[in-house]
Simulated scan of single mutants.
Amino acid sequence: MRQTPMTVRGAQKLREELDYLKTELRPRIIADIADAREHGDLKENAEYHAAREEQGFCEGRIQEIEGKLSNAQIIDVTKLPNTGKIIFGTTVELFKVDDEKEITYRIVGDDESDIKANLISVNSPIARALIGKEVDDVAVVKTPGGEVEYEIIKVQYL
């Protein structure tokens, strides 16, 4: 199976969620199922069915996170030599040429991406156009609305 790149922060967030699911949510669901069983007839017991459904979602998410972590290639960009090139994990300050706005993005794994937090997937069109570039280079991103040019102002290995 192919390894997927993930930042140290992304892996930490998944581990925290996994810990919550296993140590808090799973025991609560088990207790809910036990309580619901005490109410008698399971065929018409809504609490029991709701708890079993929640248990299914919880167990599915635990398996999903464990799978992601086992296939993750965790990259700590702070431990890599800063060559000035944009790579996975770097934080990039850009100047968007058409509307003369500055924007900062961090290139992260697919599961970590959150455009509202300026975290873009390594597989996004913007990140693909940026990878390998350095300060003062211009990256051209093909979008449905046409090409967008970004001038690279700063590359940080944070």
Score class of each variant (00 low, 15 high):
Ile153Glu: 01
Ala34Leu: 12
Ile120Thr: 03
Val122Gly: 09
Thr23Ala: 10
Ile107Val: 14
Gly145Asn: 12
Ala51Val: 08
Arg15Glu: 11
Gln3Asp: 10
Gln3Leu: 14
Leu119Arg: 01
Lys133Phe: 04
Ile107His: 09
Leu18Met: 08
Val155Asn: 03
Glu59Phe: 02
Arg52Gly: 03
Ala36Trp: 06
Val108Asp: 01
Arg2Phe: 00
Thr78Lys: 15
Ile115Asn: 14
Ile29Asn: 06
Val108Leu: 09
Glu47Lys: 08
Val8Asp: 06
Val122Thr: 13
Pro27Ala: 06
Ile107Arg: 08
Gly146Asn: 07
Glu17His: 05
Glu44Ile: 13
Ala11Ser: 11
Lys13Cys: 05
Arg26Trp: 09
Asp98Gln: 14
Ile115Val: 12
Pro27Tyr: 00
Asp32Glu: 15
Leu80Arg: 15
Glu134Asp: 14
Gln156Cys: 12
Gly40Cys: 01
Glu134Ile: 03
Lys142Ala: 12
Asp110Ile: 09
Asp35Leu: 08
Asp35Lys: 00
Met6Ile: 08
Leu25Ile: 09
Asp110Met: 05
Glu112Asp: 05
Val141Pro: 03
Asp76Phe: 06
Ile29Ala: 04
Gln55Val: 01
Asn45Ala: 00
Ile30Phe: 02
Leu80Glu: 11
Gln73Gly: 09
Ala51Gln: 04
Thr7Tyr: 02
Glu151Arg: 15
Gly10Leu: 04
Asp19Val: 05
Asp137Lys: 08
Val140Asn: 13
Thr4Trp: 00
Ile126Met: 10
Arg9Trp: 01
Ile153Thr: 07
His39Ala: 12
Ser70Ala: 14
Pro81Gln: 12
Asp41Gly: 04
Gly67Trp: 06
Asp41Val: 06
Val108Thr: 04
Gln156Trp: 10
Ile107Met: 10
Glu24Thr: 14
Gly40Glu: 00
Pro5Leu: 15
Arg52His: 11
Gly109Pro: 00
Val122Tyr: 08
Glu24Ile: 12
Gly56Pro: 05
Ala129Ser: 05
Leu14His: 09
Glu24Ser: 13
Ile153Arg: 04
Glu44Gly: 15
Val122Cys: 14
Ile152Glu: 03
Glu59Val: 03
Leu69Glu: 07
Arg37Asn: 14
Phe95Val: 03
Thr78Glu: 13
Arg61Ala: 02
Gln55Ile: 00
Ile107Cys: 08
Ile87Asp: 08
Ala117Lys: 15
Leu80Gly: 03
Arg9His: 11
Asn82Tyr: 00
Tyr48Trp: 05
Glu134Met: 13
Gly67Cys: 03
Lys96Pro: 06
Lys79Trp: 03
Ala34Val: 13
Ile33Met: 07
Pro125Gln: 00
Glu53Cys: 07
Glu47Gly: 11
Asn71Arg: 09
Asp98Tyr: 00
Thr91Gln: 14
Val108Ile: 07
Ala139Gln: 07
Met1Ala: 10
Met1His: 10
Arg128Asn: 02
Arg28Met: 10
Val135Asp: 03
Gln12His: 15
Ile115Cys: 04
Leu25Tyr: 07
Lys79Cys: 07
Lys101Cys: 10
Ser113Leu: 09
Lys68Gly: 01
Gln55Ser: 07
